[in-house]
Design a binder for these strands. Sequence first.
RNA 1: GCACCGCUAGCUCAAUGGUAGAGCAGUUGACUCUUAAUCAAUUGGUUGUAGGUUCGAGUCCUACGCGGUGCACCA
Length: 475
Amino acid sequence: MRSRGADPFAQTRYGVDTNAGELLEKYDFLETGAKAESENWSIAGRLMSQRPHGKTAFADLADRTGKLQLYVRRDEVGDGKFADWTVLDIGDIVGVHGYMFRSQKGELSLHVLKFDVLAKAMYPLPDKWHGLTDVEKRYRQRYVDLIVNPEVRDVFFARSKILAEMRRFIDAQGFYEVETPTLLHVAGGAAARPFVTHVNALDQMMQLRIATELNLKRLIVGGFERVYEIGRIFRNEGIDPVHNPEFTMLELYAAYWDVNDMREFNEALIAHLVDVVTGGKDELQIGEKTLSFKRPFKRVEYLELLREHGGYTREQLLDPGGAAAILKTLGLPESPSHAHALDKIFERAAEPHLHEPTFVTGYPVAISPLAKRRQDDPEITDRYELFIANAEISNAFTELNDPDDQRARFEGQITQRSAGDEEIPEPDWDFVRALEYGMPPTAGIGIGVDRLVMLLTNQPSIKDVLLFPLQRQHG
RNA sequence: GCACCGCUAGCUCAAUGGUAGAGCAGUUGACUCUUAAUCAAUUGGUUGUAGGUUCGAGUCCUACGCGGUGCACCA
């Protein structure tokens, strides 16, 4: 094009007054062969295919709302402009102006009277029939994936809508959204290995957060009462279809609620999102199975679940030695801590059975260092996890607000940490001090947003709900 | 980190150890309602990288790189 004396990047704007989706809807009434010549429209998008036909040409234009067929005639745009049109490549960005009609084969199309080249594509697009299927290239060059695979784009549009709907639902109940630091001196609030970095200005090592929990509870102490953060969390661990080193978590805290209030809220939120995503249904298609989200969801006590699947008793499980013995019978490797052992046992024995949405309630204190004990059963906390399709979707509990108990549990963690469990964080003593100023009774919840989006969009891999999933650097 | 599988043209894929190919895209030409447009012609390659075996390697062997899947770890 430049060799013909034209600059394909000269245009700085294009006056678009509609889009493909709107036009298709608006002119659906046109009968085959009918024209709506009195109304002209301008739209812009990417050229997805060309079907030149001598002195006329058909083409497909794609914008964010869909695809519209274009029809260009030499006798209307002029010889020179028609020649310009025929040298356009698939992938070029064009703006077109014309009127709607329905072609003789019955497709609603735009009859182009004028057009402008807005940007040139230097690379050809992947095979129009097979598309881009190379998984690696799809992730590394997501922009190409998004151009060629509309269903991929739809997943991310859906993710955007799900996030917006979550915020709307939460905001409607008077919660404040906040942003707390990603760089922390001590990354706490969860069991995970942190990323470590260095801050030049302070000449200090810092860690990327592994949870937002402790800072959000500081805000509860500070009087926020209802607060949440939807933020990026970093855990320096494996990459697989359900794990990415950085992921998005919703954490939400409500003063004066207990775990039961939170369960109600959680159930309502999930049911609402399913309703929105499915357009009014209460079930989701997950792979080959259909999952019902009719309220109330199933509920089962943690200890009962493990007695049912495996026959393990409370005494065995709550005793570190007993839990270690169970691990052995399951053929699992020795765990560095009681907490770790319980997680492994649960994962192996119970998780495969948790297909329908199920609240598992009453987790042992040993694996719940930040949750409040039950008044009538101090070895068990008022905590639940929600499982859907064998995956943990949320984790919630009545927050521990007794600073002495919190200090004691942190001290216990120091022992576990020195015993070799690298995922146990260093205690955050300022958090204990915050509790000493008085934290109201509070319930909190964490929801893995990526996994929830996977569920709601029926995607089997976390990489398919992350626009730019982490990939190894190419050599 | 371990195991298995994959890597060939821009894309999707072929090729018993014996001259590296097809379709699409690209380029040139024909065509005034096509839609995977059609028809004719045509360009396109360090077969992931580096070694090795062999008269001869896309093919067999070794190492490495990247990806996928599974396992381990984690949510």
